[in-house]
Design a protein around this nucleic acid. Structure first.
Lengths: 142, 142
DNA sequence: CTAAAACCTCGACCTACTGGAGGTTCAACC
DNA sequence: GGTTGAACCTCCAGTAGGTCGAGGTTTTAG
């Protein structure tokens, strides 16, 4: 019989987070001691590991719910799990692409910093200079 | 005199978000019409553009507060703005690196999907298989 | 038996918004 | 001057995914 603290350490999760997962229905309500403390079995440890691993891969709790549901009904098609993973991959690719653009802009910004006073700071200037950005939203009077 | 809706369209911000920025002190309390509607000047449009641009670059509202503060006191050193930007860059780089790992793992996972039943699904299996992950947190009995 | 570590519940807080209800004001048109 | 409809107002609640703390109980080792 495993305590909540043991699960927490084993999976790198905070105790409160495990209770939160229980609250939102990702983890089952476990058995309790006479004193009311939660006691888990190995199945719950596995389930929590699954959740944490999926979270680390960026899956939302809703997506994880779907995956766990699939996992609980092994007769269903693998295609659903595949689709969820592909959706996730697409999102990750988009995030990487956006961050790459950011990185370049930040690097350029920093490189141009003269080290002088804030009044001449390129970082602030770039942020202030929105001439390029505004064109994206310009739908007024055009 | 500019309306809140005009600022919203010009900067691609929702009206509510502008009011939220005012609430949390990022935007100043503007003048009002006799009827109580907000009216802005060009300075506020610039300030909002600055905020949105910085948000798009991933800066937190707290970081933007610092930057605006610097911007409001141009005699202070540029180094502070530079430091904030560098901090931001580091975070972006870390996020990119982590996402790259994720992307590879997701791709591998999907590639191995047999297209069979969920019981044999590699996606679920990979998520379930935590043997590698656990070693990261293993501080019990080791 | 005692002390401390781990556990319990409940509720508030975090970021950065977003949405809606229910009501008022503005600007244009006739 | 009246009317209409878009845009505005305030206030409240909710989102994701937790995290923290207060105040109290249980478990376990010595």
């Amino acid at each position: 019989m495993l305590t909540i603290g043991y699960l927490a350490k084993k999976t790198g999760t905070k105790v409160q987070t495990i209770r939160y997962y229980e609250q939102v229905g990702l983890m089952p309500e476990p058995g309790r001691t006479d004193g009311g403390q939660r006691r888990y079995g190995d199945a719950e440890l596995d389930r929590l590991s699954f959740i944490r691993h999926a979270r680390q891969l960026g899956f939302s709790l809703d997506a994880i719910r779907e995956l766990l549901d699939l996992s609980d009904h092994p007769a269903r098609s693998c295609e659903e799990a595949d689709a969820i993973a592909r959706r996730q991959l697409k999102q990750v690719e988009q995030r990487v692409a956006r961050l790459e653009v950011l990185r370049l802009e930040l690097e350029r910004m920093i490189e141009e910093c003269s080290g002088g006073r804030a009044a001449d700071c390129r970082v602030l200037e770039v942020l202030r200079d929105h001439s390029e950005c505004l064109t994206d939203h310009e739908g007024i009077g055009a």
